[in-house]
Design a protein around this nucleic acid. Sequence first.
DNA 1: GGATAACTTGACCCTAGGGTTAAGTTGACT
DNA 2: AGTCAACTTAACCCTAGGGTCAAGTTATCC
Lengths: 203, 203
Amino acid sequence: MALVSSRTPIEDAGQASAMPLRADAARNVTQIRAAAIAAFRGRGLSTPLEEIAAAAGVSKATIYNRFGGRDGLIDAVIGELVAAEMYAIMERPQPADDPWQAIATYVRDRRDLQYREPAFTDALLMMYPNSAQLVALARAATEMTESLLRRGHDAGVLREDFTASDLYYADVANGLALRALRRPARKDYDRRTRFFIDSLRVR
Amino acid sequence: MALVSSRTPIEDAGQASAMPLRADAARNVTQIRAAAIAAFRGRGLSTPLEEIAAAAGVSKATIYNRFGGRDGLIDAVIGELVAAEMYAIMERPQPADDPWQAIATYVRDRRDLQYREPAFTDALLMMYPNSAQLVALARAATEMTESLLRRGHDAGVLREDFTASDLYYADVANGLALRALRRPARKDYDRRTRFFIDSLRVR
DNA sequence: GGATAACTTGACCCTAGGGTTAAGTTGACT
DNA sequence: AGTCAACTTAACCCTAGGGTCAAGTTATCC
């Protein structure tokens, strides 16, 4: 994957770069990022690059030049798209909180994010393991989940046979159904989320 | 879709046909059906036809000749693949049974079928609405579900805000996750099924 | 053991999408 | 205003898979 300049796609993915881009290239980067965010929001991270290029008013080769391909493009927008919200969710439950409330809030927030951002499900599925940002996000989220569940088990409020993989499986399942079926009404979606959260609590 | 003879794919899909096939053609039909069942079991109903043809030792054009395409082929094997088991599941809960047990058994049996047959999820999703058998199966299953849930609600054992679409959504979600992730161990899968069933019961 | 309708198939066309590159265009520095 | 590296892109190649058909093969009937 030889790039035109010595700048790597990773460097280009960041906001600032040692050697600034030429004016036309910088303009294109901005437009491509905007188009990618809109497209990824609507269709998930596997939207054809050609479609994004068309929306940005450039040819797809320009995306390859600027970002090195889909992985680079994802890296360049995933922060704005998903990572920022996910990190916010992870900061919400404080150690001082009631262990059950912390879990319920966390699970509900994740479900909410899935409803708003189909791309989050792609992130969950690690469909693009070459995106460094996505890998870091996944690791952080896994740690967060495990520590929350541990607290819940220790406090005796969480069903003891409920594991982190159970939550992962359930969220993947939910995200895929959300994409495969036509989007449920918010009130139906929330009710199902409530069913799920209720099922985690000790009886 | 012009066929060689006046026989339609639908007629060919059945076991017996007015005018019998030539010996070589009959042999091919048998081999194609067997290959399709094996392939659909392993990979779902969207397995490439070329792969099935290769496994059957014929060219894919023969599948088009004999079955008229994917829909016809599905029609020809869906009975053996899924419909027979699904109808069996629907006959298990008797009207005399305890309403809660009937629901729990039905839901558990469906989950079990999903685990064994990825093709069942394709059927659930109605990915191939041109298969008459699949449409009939879906209608029967929907009716069954609705009547079971009604009984559960009337008897006050089923969460009153739980609907037939909730069950459909949950089963689609489960089926998609099952296919997207690597297959969970049976004991994990069964535990998650138990969580789900527990969550349906009135508290 | 012909004749012929039934049957099969290799070779084709088409589409969507990922990825690359030679050749042309243009911004920026002098 | 000229130079040239930076930049863009049309035009390409490639793969997977759905679908079709003219030409050849073969089972069956007489």
